[in-house]
Write a protein that binds this DNA or RNA. Structure first.
Length: 261
DNA sequence: ATGGTTGAAACTCAA
């Protein structure tokens, strides 16, 4: 079973690339972030025509997440628990049947948090705490669980071509990196790093200053696995193809393969 | 040296 995550940076601007990529790769489940669309504006028809079920948690103008699945989506939950006043669409979760088992999948768009020292960074910190609390809850279920998305966290210096460039950035602050370590301490596995200990594994390249051409990337799109999911992990990788295409998102898909019917 | 780009929406913000 192949599960992918892709910050698509506007689903309406990227629908042709998304269709082509779905048709070529046929992932069982796809977690999208930054769809920048309300639910009614999401281009579900061409995606459903490829055999995918669609669950959307959208918002006008920015943010927005979705899950696409070749299998049914059950028990869909929209919004990260822990703050009923939070209006930003950054979390959607669903149960997906996999043979005689189930896997729970979430599409996560963790706040960017820039610039540091503002309420945006404070919001990021609160959101990271809420995610940890929800992760703790989900882990008590002791089921295969995949929390996939744009975490807006550079976990280690090795996850950036030029880490010094990010020293004042919210993505590489001690608070962000500490939250990441807490997620791992709860028992979650970083799927990409587990399969790829080598340097220069990135998922995002800025549009500006020729970042893609210089491979000046960062690794911020992650799939965190519960122990029950990690036991099923057979492969994980970054698909750099879409980032090199015409009119790309600034992120490229990352994916895992689980040994699941 | 403080540039450079993109999407959504609207006379600018978020990334």
């Amino acid at each position: 079973m192949k599960i992918a995550t892709w910050n698509i940076n506007g689903v309406k601007a990227r629908i042709a690339q998304l269709e082509g990529w779905l048709a070529a790769q046929r992932p069982d489940v796809v977690c999208l972030q930054e769809i920048k669309s309300v639910d009614e504006g999401f281009p579900a028809a061409p995606i459903e025509a490829l055999g995918y079920n669609v669950a959307v948690h959208g918002q006008k103008g920015f943010n927005g997440v979705a899950i696409l699945s070749l299998r049914p989506l059950e028990d869909v939950r929209r919004g990260l628990p822990g703050d009923p006043t939070d209006e930003q669409a950054r979390y959607i979760e669903a149960l997906v049947p996999a043979g005689d088992r189930m896997v729970r999948v979430a599409s996560i768009y963790l706040p960017n948090g820039n610039p540091i020292g503002t309420d945006k960074f404070a919001y990021k910190c609160r959101w990271m705490d809420r995610l940890e609390a929800h992760m703790s809850e989900l882990l008590t279920l002791e089921e295969p669980l995949v929390l996939a998305g744009d975490y807006n966290i550079i976990p280690e210096p090795a996850d950036a071509k030029a880490p010094q460039q990010w020293s004042e950035d919210a993505l590489f602050q001690p608070e962000s990196r500490a939250a990441w370590r807490r997620y791992l301490a709860l028992g979650m596995t970083d799927a990409i790093r587990t399969c790829h200990p080598e340097p220069d594994v990135y998922s995002f390249w800025d549009y500006q200053a020729g970042a893609w051409q210089r491979n000046n990337g960062i690794r911020i799109d992650h799939l965190l696995l519960s122990p029950q999911a990690a036991d099923l992990l057979v492969a994980a990788d970054v698909d750099k193809g879409p980032r090199g295409a015409e009119k790309p998102s600034d992120h490229t898909p990352v994916w895992i393969e689980l040994e699941l019917g």
